[in-house]
Amino acid sequence: MKIGKVIGSVVATQKVDSLEGIKLLLVQPLDENLKEVGSPVVACDTVQAGYGDVVFYEGGREAALALSNWFNPSDCTIMGIIDQVTVQGERKS
């Protein structure tokens, strides 16, 4: 699982049926110090994350398993909203 920040949302009306009704959010991956690392990814949302929320997400088959209809092509799904990250005793939120 990785840390990310929601920086936008994605609307796609023409898409595969199994992604119907699933919110797509644009997520910027962050490192443990909440610094940007790598390029943004599109993730399916399962926890009603909003713009600016720091979240954790997972890829691979687990991303598909997290959705109600687990037979879907998602390869990146947000699984929780992070309230606080503590690293080396320093609190970052």
Binding site: I3, V47, F56, A66, I81, I82, D83, T86, V87, Q88
Partner: peptide
């Protein structure tokens, strides 16, 4: 282990586990 994450809004399967 270098830190921990607090998250209250998460999928039910994560309930009760430290991240």
């Amino acid at each position: 282990v270098v830190g921990n994450v607090v998250s209250t809004m998460k999928l039910p399967v994560f309930q009760g586990f430290k991240i």
